[in-house]
């Protein structure tokens, strides 16, 4: 049961004289005399991306659920923020859990971006020429097509978000642990443009998750013919729930619900 490769050298006429020419490409095969160091396998880079993405997604879910505390009133939100810092005390020091999470997140973000950059560079050289015909669009969903630039936008948003609601630098209130007041001042109706920016960023996160979750599951080998559709639907529903959950807070503040 030997599989024979389809022979590509079987052309006739005009083509035959051409295919006999030697390709100018460097032969990277095992017969090449000096073997260069093998590349980091692309599949491995994909695993790095999927696993780091899984950590980031897990954090997003916890973050989203935590945000919803605002609907139980300002004191509930502030108490929740304080609890996050005293979590597992005295077994761990003050803010111990929080810093552990921050370190895991930072490592995940770096791993996610590092693998993405390497794979993007490889994709560029693996597909150097665009097609002239057709609609020029890369096939696949909108979410799939915007993963790379969407990721860049999300990264920039995260920087702004940290300066806004973590350090308080760009926040009009900006007092540490006065979470409700900070959020209320941030998304005040007069600052509608900030709310709008957050809405757009959260939608970008939703789109990223919509393709990223499905893609990650496929990368980790969880998909098969029967499960492919359910997994895609699950990812889409998951992304919508996450997006709505995150949108609820800024919109509720701007429209005076809380």
């Amino acid at each position: 049961m030997h599989w024979t490769a389809p022979h590509f050298d079987m052309c006739t006429g005009v083509v035959a004289t051409v295919t006999s020419q030697k390709s100018p490409r460097k032969d990277p095969g095992p017969s090449a005399p000096a073997r260069r160091r093998p590349k980091l396998p692309g599949v491995l880079l994909k695993f790095v991306m999927a696993v780091s993405g899984a950590f980031l997604l897990l954090y997003l879910v916890l973050h989203m659920v935590g945000n919803l505390k605002i609907f139980f009133g300002g004191p509930a939100l502030d108490a929740y923020a304080a609890w996050l810092r005293t979590l597992l005390e005295p077994a761990v020091p003050y803010e111990g859990v929080l810093w552990f999470v921050r370190v895991v997140l930072s490592v995940s973000v770096i791993a996610h971006i590092w693998s993405a950059v390497l794979l993007t560079l490889r994709a560029r050289s693996a597909r150097p020429v665009k097609y002239a015909g057709g609609n020029h669009k890369v096939k696949g969903s909108y979410a799939a097509r915007t993963m790379r630039w969407g990721g860049v936008i999300i990264a920039l948003f995260v920087v702004y978000h940290l300066l806004d609601l973590t350090t308080g630098t760009l926040n009009p209130n900006g007092v540490h642990l006065q979470v409700y007041d900070n959020v209320a001042a941030d998304f005040a109706p007069s600052r509608w443009y900030v709310t709008l920016f957050y809405v757009l960023a959260v939608v970008a996160v939703g789109l990223h998750v919509r393709h990223g979750l499905w893609s990650g599951l496929q990368t980790l080998g969880a998909s098969n013919n029967r499960r492919e559709r359910p997994l895609k639907i699950f990812s889409a529903v998951f992304a919508v729930v996450l997006t709505v959950g995150f949108l609820a807070v800024p919109l509720a503040v701007t429209f005076g619900v809380v």
Partner: peptide, 22 residues
């Protein structure tokens, strides 16, 4: 096969599904 695939200059998969469509 994965090592040879990468060495030959093919890129990585982003699960867009364009391949299966084509």
């Amino acid at each position: 096969m994965v090592e040879t695939h990468d060495d030959a200059g093919f890129g990585g998969c982003t699960n867009t599904g364009a391949c299966a469509t084509a």
